[in-house]
């Protein structure tokens, strides 16, 4: 019985969230779209980086691939938005697979460094290809989609990420991830193909990030590689996920909501202080709340029980 109640409660919550565009529009709807976008990105990031402790800074690169492929497909090749939206995640997943094979068998430091400059590197490459081979006419993403449609699509992606995470938590692969996050050598010796597990999961992170990037592309109308391949986005996703905590599926959500709101205020009112805020957020997480908000709540709960 409690299962049915819980299911019902989740369904009601989802319906309420889905109904939001009917109540709010303009500014608040755009904030809701941003929150939804970061929820999908941070949650899928945490599915990989949480258990494995590999800090992936590649979100901006995959998100950019999603946005850029939609833009170039529509402007340079006359493809439809929907086709490109379907292709982009697979391209990103393949790229993630290749990066994973090259870097994930080595120590985490190498992986962080490789992903650190990835968005910038792909942006340079893409700009060069665009200028030299495709002509430098503008990349326009003109669709009939309105903000609320984008919101609903992102909600669907977010739900897919949660469902995937929930299934993963109950699967052998999820268990394998927890073991390899604890001790990779033990994981190998109990029979887990650790390299394959890490690469596959990293591919899903790339898949979802590109899907989000593709869906959000119509929001920009005019796409410049500088805008979509954003290193800042990678850092924001890391901060939000760690702030919320990666041990629970809903953890990142608890970081996304407050940080998106804070970020909106800071970038609107104190645009020159954004970098400083990013820095302080990282320091706050490392020194004061290493297990995120969910970890903090867990600790307080334990303390209150005698």
């Amino acid at each position: 019985m409690p299962d049915i109640l819980r299911g019902g409660a989740i369904l009601l919550a989802v319906l309420a969230v889905a109904a939001l565009p009917l109540l709010a529009d303009g500014y608040w709807l755009s904030i809701a779209v941003t929150i939804m976008m970061y929820t999908a990105l941070s949650t899928s990031w945490a599915l990989f980086s949480g258990p494995t402790h590999y800090i992936a800074l590649s979100t901006g690169a995959f998100y950019g691939i999603g946005g850029y492929l939609v833009a170039t497909g529509m402007s340079d090749f006359g493809t439809s938005f929907w086709t490109m939206m379907a292709i982009a995640p697979f391209v990103a997943a393949l790229l993630a697979g290749a990066i994973g094979i090259a870097t994930l068998r080595l120590s985490g430091v190498y992986f962080v460094i490789f992903t650190l400059g990835l968005a910038e590197m792909i942006r340079n490459l893409v700009s060069w290809v665009q200028n030299n081979f495709l002509g430098s006419k503008g990349l326009y993403v003109l669709t009939e989609l309105e903000e609320r449609h984008i919101y609903w699509m992102l909600l669907a992606v977010t739900l897919a990420v949660f469902l995937f995470g929930w299934r993963l938590g109950r699967s052998r692969m999820g268990f394998a991830l927890r073991i390899l996050g604890n001790d990779e050598e033990v994981a190998r010796h109990v029979g887990i193909d650790t390299a394959r597990t890490k690469v596959l999961l990293f591919m899903t992170t790339g898949f979802f990030a590109a899907l989000v990037g593709a869906i959000v592309a119509p929001r920009y109308y005019y796409i410049e590689p500088n805008v979509v391949f954003s290193p800042e986005l990678s850092f924001l996703v890391v901060i939000m996920a760690l702030l919320g905590g990666t041990r629970r599926l809903y953890g990142p959500l608890l970081g996304v909501i407050p940080f998106t709101l804070l970020w909106e205020v800071v970038s609107a009112s104190f645009p020159s202080a954004t970098t400083m805020v990013l820095g302080l957020a990282f320091l706050l997480i490392v020194y004061l709340i290493p297990d995120g908000v969910t970890g903090l709540i867990g600790k307080l709960r334990k303390r209150s029980v005698p």
Partner: peptide, 25 residues
């Protein structure tokens, strides 16, 4: 060692952004 790796990566990122912020100002 893995914990130290993650912590020091995040902390030095924080320091890095903080310094950029200071220099921008």
């Amino acid at each position: 060692r893995g914990q130290l790796e993650v912590d020091s990566i995040l902390a030095t990122f924080g320091i890095s952004f903080f310094l950029v912020g200071v220099m921008v100002s």
